[in-house]
């Protein structure tokens, strides 16, 4: 057996000599971080705290890499995150991109995202929860596990609830297999607060608590433009002014959901545009088909009620 244990002659590779100094600027250029951050700035409007945190994580991973190359002590940083914010502030959108971002930064091996809610983790009977949670965790290994509306895992009103079992398994894997997967919890701010105070283990194992701020009016208008552009529509001048009024009025309604409200308003405006073109009859050109006018926005319930 000694023959097998000996390496074949000529195949041993000497460890590369440790370097004395590294140029961080060079490393930054060689990595994909620059284009990645530019892309985020372009595709996501507003969300300054989120972009700032992604920038920090990128820098941290770069420094960790540099430390490793210089032979300094390094341990895998924990990157579990919690996203909190009001409805429609982009939590899910950012989470979906986070897997790709962490993959390109070289933190996760595969870069896929497994998106689950309480139903995927918690079973219906005794002994049903652990295998279910473990299966989800195994699927997420090498990527990102995104738990939407995570506070539903914990139901204080029912002490026999199986959610607690799922939480315990999650915590264990989050602690022991930090380099195998990243867990992102998302939910509305106040309910996540309750969730964390009931499960202090979660709070301490999550290094990054990112709060998603509400969008201001100007950002919402830019989002409307972006949504329309993606769908091949555009707003004319009158529609844009109407939209500004709409955003201001919509904000004061109780069910305001930031970008999601804008998305819905756009969908309704599109319907109204279709019926207008349909009832007008006659010939239409590409321009008419893709233009949304003030009339479509003004006829919204939100604007008609207050004026």
């Amino acid at each position: 057996m000694t023959m097998l244990a000996d390496p074949m002659p000529g195949t041993e590779t000497p460890a590369p000599p440790l370097r004395q100094a590294l140029n961080l600027a060079d490393m930054y250029r060689d990595s994909e971080i620059g284009p990645l951050l530019a892309e985020l700035d372009r595709d996501l409007i507003g969300l300054q705290p989120v972009k700032q945190r992604i920038r920090e994580i990128a820098a941290y991973l770069l420094v960790t890499k540099a430390r490793r190359e210089l032979g300094l002590e390094t341990s895998t940083p924990t990157l579990h995150m919690a996203f909190t914010g009001n409805p429609g502030t982009g939590k899910t959108t950012v989470a979906l991109r986070m897997a790709g971002i962490l993959h390109r930064l070289g933190y996760v091996r595969r870069g896929h995202l497994v998106s689950v809610t309480r139903d995927d983790l918690v079973g219906q009977y005794i002994g049903h929860t652990a295998p279910k949670t473990k299966e989800v965790l195994k699927r997420a290994m090498g990527g990102v596990l995104f738990i939407d509306e995570a506070y539903y895992l914990y139901r204080p009103e029912n002490e026999k609830d199986y959610g607690q079992e799922a939480i315990e398994i999650l915590l264990q894997v989050m602690e022991n297999q930090r380099d195998d997967l990243v867990v992102i919890l998302a939910g509305y701010a106040d309910r996540m607060q309750t969730f964390f105070s009931a499960n202090p283990g979660f709070r301490s194992r999550i290094a990054h608590h990112i709060d998603f701020p509400d969008y201001d009016d100007e950002e919402l208008l830019r989002i409307a433009d972006l949504i329309a552009e993606k769908e091949g529509y555009r707003f004319d001048e009158g529609a844009r002014a109407a939209l500004a009024d709409y955003v201001a009025a919509r904000r004061n309604r109780p069910d305001f959901a930031n970008a999601r409200s804008i998305r819905n308003a756009f969908d309704r405006a599109r319907l109204r545009q279709a019926i207008r073109l349909f009832e007008a009859g006659g010939e239409v050109d590409a321009d008419a088909l893709s233009t949304i006018t003030a009339a479509e926005i003004r006829s919204s319930r939100v604007l008609s009620r207050d004026g």
Partner: peptide, 17 residues
Amino acid sequence: WGMPMFDLKDAAGVMME
């Protein structure tokens, strides 16, 4: 030992089992 593991992307899950 448990169910066959479908939809896995990474060996870490199997190694855990």
